[in-house]
């Protein structure tokens, strides 16, 4: 029957292995410093996509969603202003009639009525 430790002298060797395990080579401080320096040099700068950076500048997803909502509301008000509000386009181009303002609000908003005569 095979007895590995006896065949290979494992008992006798174990004392030597134990001595080696008990006192592992200590890492020199200079080596650790070189390894950390290498690590720093090898560490590629992290590339952040432009959309991510822009989002961070504008306050993250909360900021972006607020901005999108405000943009949509602005477009809608510009396209079809409520009747209670004066038509900015009409005021600028000198329309005096409120009837005209109310009837042609959608057109006067962008000055298209002027182009069409």
């Amino acid at each position: 029957m095979k007895k590995p430790d006896r065949d290979t002298g494992g008992d006798a060797l174990e004392a030597f292995f134990e001595a080696a395990r008990a006192a592992p080579p200590q890492v020199p401080k200079a080596l650790m410093a070189r390894v950390l320096e290498d690590a720093q040099e090898a560490q590629a700068p992290v590339r952040v996509p432009i959309w991510t950076r822009l989002g961070e500048v504008l306050g993250g997803w909360q900021g972006l969603s607020g901005l999108a909502a405000a943009t949509c509301a602005g477009l809608w008000i510009g396209w079809s202003p409520p009747q209670a509000l004066p038509d900015a386009g009409a005021l600028i181009f000198g329309y005096g009639s409120t009837e005209l303002l109310s009837n042609t609000a959608e057109l006067t908003s962008f000055g298209w009525d002027l182009e069409e005569g």
Partner: peptide, 12 residues
Amino acid sequence: ARGKRALTALLA
């Protein structure tokens, strides 16, 4: 196993 046999002989 072979390595330990050789070491045993060397360190005996």
